[in-house]
Write a protein that binds this DNA or RNA. Structure first.
Lengths: 332, 332
DNA sequence: CTTTGCAATCGTAACGTTACGATTGCAAAG
DNA sequence: CTTTGCAATCGTAACGTTACGATTGCAAAG
């Protein structure tokens, strides 16, 4: 493994000149730059991350803090395209991406503090934003570049990428009304989660516009797994005044609901109208008439890296925020 | 951010003694160790990864080289529990996990070479093993600790974790025969992939035992997406002598096949018997009678880290290999 | 012939850590 | 009183890199 010293010795130059030549320093004679680069290539020189990071403080590493649902069989499928988008974009931008997984037992603020103390990343990606998320102030105060997947209700501006959950839930509810549904059930994920709050707001807006009352018993929280979703929807179907429409939170929630319907011999599109969010194109392949809001999570991942890189390269720049729309397919 | 120097100044000790005290060096007076640790805690000392790595060569980072299917909508779902298992186990073992994503355009050997040159990881996890996989020799020669997810046909021993694909495919085929199927279709993923070769071998063994001929037209390669799987199975169903049994490669392949069946008004468990592999418990929730081999990919991820850590801590130790079984649920 | 200015290159120190050998100070042995 | 041995602590150098200021050498200006 060649280092700067070896290249310098090879060419009878100083380490300094070699270092500068490799980054096309204007003080170095062009012919010297060429000689250095040739020797570097010949000797298989690859810069040492750790020496560089120690000296400059830049680590060329980004870290995504991601919650993993260890308690359940499978967490939200959208994390896979999200990770794909992030890792590929990070690599393309010259960074490596480290994944810091957190369990439900971990305190989110503490996880961020740990990252700040370790000082081994150039920027953080945080997810699962909650109301008045304390991580935002912490990261801004410490001047650690970051980007959030999701928004929070704070006065301070901060960089984020988000999906327009309010609009998607609004549209979903409207579509279900168009099919004739009046009693519309709504699936939500983490209740404290900002995304759930936005979904609830969009649902509420559509219901209010139509002059329909909101029945709290039709709103399901914590639909993380197929099991919980199936059990919840089964309970609703068994009630005296069952729902005729359902807006699902994601693929797993959809599968759970379909399971509950199937058990009762009911059919989506006939007995209950369904609209779902989807990030895997899975809903298209189910043998059922379902409206689908496709949300491109790989694009979200790429955007997150793009915004984060902007923050790192130019921290003084205006805070960049991106809001992504869903793409609706009525499903026949 | 406190460093060793600041702790040393605080206590009027040398940096060396502080460094040793923090790792309970036997040369340091126990009372000094206590004082140092107290000061470290009080000043919020967190060791600097980069200084440490530069000096010792140990980076406390593991890298998983994972192929991402950028061309298609969604790659294999099993990667999500795999990533969950790996990241959580790595964190528990005191390592950070970096994900190096590769696209179908990347040369797998080159990806490994890049990791070797960068010297910024303590160990590598490689996947998608191919026949006579050249990466194994490369990594052994360079003495880079690694673990493979999957086996390859080489004389040299090397550390791996694998799922017993041969046995799972064998059992799947046998189960389908038990239901009365004679013409059994088999879904495979990457043809060059060792996992596909093993599945084919298990299928072949079951067919041979039953004295049944192998019809190459019933063997489908490259069933990565629901689309390709649906199109392939639809073609088979349209043929003169359609299959009466199907062994699916994974959840997506299953969904594609169900889609093809649904379009023709056929029913799984009645017209065609299906057994699938599953790593997400998704198959259990489909409204269809399907036999399911559950493969715990989170456990695979944890095992990979465990074996890799063993290689790093003691490279001289006997090569550790693990073979995980599937867990069958006949689905009624 | 000296001075100035500049292009090109060099040397040193430092980022934070640890390996290695050296030093200190004191009790026990002679 | 000196020597030996040892526990505890220290100092220096080095990992690979880059920032910063210094030096070299030469052409142009005076």
């Amino acid at each position: 493994m060649a280092n700067l010293k070896q290249i310098a010795a090879e060419l009878s130059l100083s380490v300094t000149t070699v270092s500068r030549a490799l980054k096309d320093g204007p003080e170095v004679l062009p012919s010297t730059i060429a000689r250095v680069k040739e020797a570097a290539k010949r000797l298989g020189y690859v810069p040492n991350h750790y020496g560089r990071a120690l000296k400059t403080g830049r680590t060329l590493t980004l870290t995504a803090v991601l919650p993993m649902e260890t308690r359940d069989y499978l967490s939200d499928l959208l994390k896979l395209p999200l990770i794909e988008g992030m890792t590929l974009a990070a690599r393309q931008a010259g960074y490596s991406l480290s994944i810091y997984s957190t369990t439900p037992d971990d305190d989110p603020v503490e996880s961020v503090q740990r990252q700040l103390q370790a000082r081994s990343t150039d920027g953080l990606i945080i997810t699962r934003m909650v109301s008045r998320d304390p991580r935002v102030k912490l990261l801004l105060d410490e001047r650690m570049p970051f980007v959030a997947f999701g928004r929070t209700d704070l006065d301070t501006a901060y960089p984020y990428v988000d999906v327009d959950n309010e609009q998607i839930a609004y549209e979903a509810t409207r579509r279900l009304m168009d099919k004739g549904s009046r009693r519309i059930a709504l699936q939500l994920l983490v209740p404290e989660d900002q995304a759930s709050a936005m979904r609830l707001a969009g649902y509420g807006r559509a219901m209010a516009e139509a002059g329909l009352p909101i029945d709290q018993s039709l709103i399901g929280h914590g639909m993380f797994t197929m099991e919980s979703s199936a059990a919840w929807f089964d309970r609703l179907l068994a009630s005296l005044d069952p729902p005729t429409g359902l807006a699902c939170a994601n693929e797993l929630g959809l599968l759970g609901a379909l399971h509950a319907l199937g058990k009762r011999g009911l059919e989506p599109g006939r007995d209950v109208h369904i609209v779902t969010r989807d990030s895997t194109r899975l809903a298209h392949f189910l043998p059922a008439k379902i409206g689908v809001h496709f949300v491109d999570m790989a694009a979200v991942g790429r955007k997150l890296i793009e915004v984060l890189e902007g923050q790192i390269v130019n921290p003084a720049t205006a805070v960049e925020t991106v809001l992504l729309q869903g793409e609706f397919d009525p499903g026949e």
